[in-house]
Amino acid sequence: MTIEVKNIVKKFGSFAALDNVDLKVAQGELLALLGPSGSGKTTLLRIIAGLDWPDAGEVSIDGENALARGASERHVGFVFQHYALFRHMTVFENVAFGLRVQPRAIRKDESTIRARVKELLDLVQLDWLSSRYPSQLSGGQRQRIALARALAIEPRILLLDEPFGALDAKVRKELRQWLRSLHSEIHVTSIFVTHDQEEALEVANRVVVMDKGRIEQIGTPGEVYDDPATAFVHGFIGESIVLPVDVSGGSVRLAGQPLNIAANGAASGASKLFVRRHDMAIGPAGSGSLEGAVRHVRSFGPIQRAEVALSGGEGKTIIEIDAPRDRELQAGEIVSLQPRRYRIFAAQD
């Protein structure tokens, strides 16, 4: 099922939750809506689900105008952040719910429903819990039941709202992998919302990075990590070193001192230099654009992480770099740093 979203606008009072959002979701893909709180990702998800309505714009699912129908008619499976399991029903009854409320005409008979529920509980490996109540389950179990319940109605799209947000780190990781393998098994077009970029990059086919109601970038996890389109994306995904620089006439200066890096077509004016921690090449003093004194080194595994106080500008700028451990850095040592890969964005981004 393909989804197309055009020019969606949603305001709460004067606050623009969604500001002209366009998105196309391909058949069978697992898409992540990634962004900080307030970015509009949950609002967008709920609009696609039919749990919320845009002030302007179009939503079409498989070419049909989806806004003509309410949530109960869109045949969309929704998994809530806090599971929203029906507390007074057993696990079995929860999963069977969607099948039991279907209109008489298309409703299956009870034995078919029972078989389908069992099939789904087996799929999520929780068949043994079928007569328990939600309050007797752990968070991770509840979320899997919520997923099974959503899948029971054979939805054309699966929407998940921060599905692992309420779980602790270890369970989150397990369920992430589980979701990915589940998706490769059942191939339902799926969109999930998260503020955890590690989750988005690990699980999704494509990532939609959002901030303040707008889409900043859409791309594969690799594209979004290696080729961030805006300062926000660069800063939000992965760790970055950010230095205020000035671009003029094709040369880049930091605190007045020219840096030996190409401006790469960046516009003149106050800008920000973004470099990944591991993209700083280290050399002996004098060999690179930046120089600084190593203040502190932590080693773990194959990486050493060094705190370096840059020489220029009163020595007050401190950055963290990651370096391989082929040459151990010492505290107090003066090193030279050269950005291997970097981006320059205008300062007001």
Binding site: L51, D52, W53, P54, L67, A68, G70, A71
Partner: peptide, 13 residues
Amino acid sequence: MSIAVARRSTLPG
């Protein structure tokens, strides 16, 4: 049934 994009609530009734 075609409904203009206007304020609607999730829950019916």
